[in-house]
Design a protein around this nucleic acid. Sequence first.
DNA 1: TGTACATCAGTGAACGCGCGTTCACTGATGTAC
DNA 2: TGTACATCAGTGAACGCGCGTTCACTGATGTAC
Lengths: 249, 249
Amino acid sequence: MSSPARRNRERAATDREIRRTARTLLVEHGPEAVTLRAIARELGLTAPALYRYYGSRDDLVEHLRRDIVTDLGAELASDSAGLPGDGPRQLFSICRGFRQWALTHMNEFTLVFASPTGEIGTGRSSVATLNHVSEPLGHAFLVAAGRVLTTHRIAAPGDDIVPPELRDDLAAYRDSLLSVLSDSGLAVTADRFTLGTTYLMMQFWARIYGHVTLEVFGNYPIPVAKPDALFDAVLADLAREIGLDVDLP
Amino acid sequence: MSSPARRNRERAATDREIRRTARTLLVEHGPEAVTLRAIARELGLTAPALYRYYGSRDDLVEHLRRDIVTDLGAELASDSAGLPGDGPRQLFSICRGFRQWALTHMNEFTLVFASPTGEIGTGRSSVATLNHVSEPLGHAFLVAAGRVLTTHRIAAPGDDIVPPELRDDLAAYRDSLLSVLSDSGLAVTADRFTLGTTYLMMQFWARIYGHVTLEVFGNYPIPVAKPDALFDAVLADLAREIGLDVDLP
DNA sequence: TGTACATCAGTGAACGCGCGTTCACTGATGTAC
DNA sequence: TGTACATCAGTGAACGCGCGTTCACTGATGTAC
């Protein structure tokens, strides 16, 4: 019989090589360099061979996007999991890791986090966001943030900090967060995870993302000699703002 | 003699048409649709004709970027100038206008504010930032912000809110801001425009930019039914944070 | 164990496409005397 | 006012390029009996 598994294994290996090559091209030469012909060339194949693996170039790029977020999330989660402590350290590690990754993988960042996707305002959004809680990145962020907010806050913020128009949206989101967190073995009750908490978490993410985007695209108002210090200052601001009773690690 | 001006006028008119067409292509079909051939086609010319106006495609795109920022800045400045009051209203008008423009001109926004340009961390940054104070957008923002900060703050923030590592950078920036403001006939003294003030202005811009980018690219954690309300909430937070003693208009 | 057959990863030629850019040119507009 | 000349916006053909995708094919690997 001579194992049918062998062909499968080789097929899977080739697939991995295709994605790896696409990734390298993206990182080193930008999104427009990710062409079927270039990938095939790099692999010593002919371009039509790739159609054994993907239906079209777009199909391949879509898989690439997913790969990127998945890998990023896994990496950040595992890095932060190795740290001691019960929350804040992990959360800040994820934030710093995200920034570091963005700075060193500008092209990947652009593709995944800063490319126009879909319509505006329809609620449909890109792959790489917290609203797809299953994404490892979102998951890592949420778990760390949830842990921090439940164990290190002085008091849960009142719902009054949330503008009335946003309460319905936030309530739905909060519920989905709570279920994700309880799946992670983190028992959080709604009285410690208020609408206000949810609002702060959203703002927290928005500021991290905003700062990182600004920095990656060189759109900072000033040339800053020590950008790391600036980011740390933002983290410290955020920590204070969400009411953490800890010093920054 | 039959005026030499005539040829010049026609040349200038054609140039404007070229840019307008490039702009339309960008808005409607994205950056990769801005090709010399497409522009020529639209104008009833042949592609080589464009070389009478621009040295290369890249050259044209660069001019396009500058046009976009210039027009945006002028538009926001003139809109806000029409409003009554002495500061806050103008500042918030500029912020809202920026967001509105970004949402309705996603492709232009991407080209100008969210495209990788130059190296990271070298201090060189894209065209469209506050560090090129001459840009109308930066100018409008600065003048409005400066006016607000000098007339509506309860007290200038102390320099102690600024992390020590950032003070040198901020001091240089503050000085250039002060000279821009005094060129606008706004006499601001350094004791009302502290390093802390400068720091807050920078953070202010970072949050606006961050929020807008997030929204434009659909990367918001939640589907928000009323995104306008969310933005207003962010503005209100910012107003509180920079210590404005005014209600939001 | 051997033989006929099925699967399927990869080939190589070809398709049509649109692109930026070059080059020698035309012909109208403007200039000098 | 008329004539010879210069300028220069725009033409049209051609260049070489790389792309995604199709198609009929080869040949090794695996399957059924």
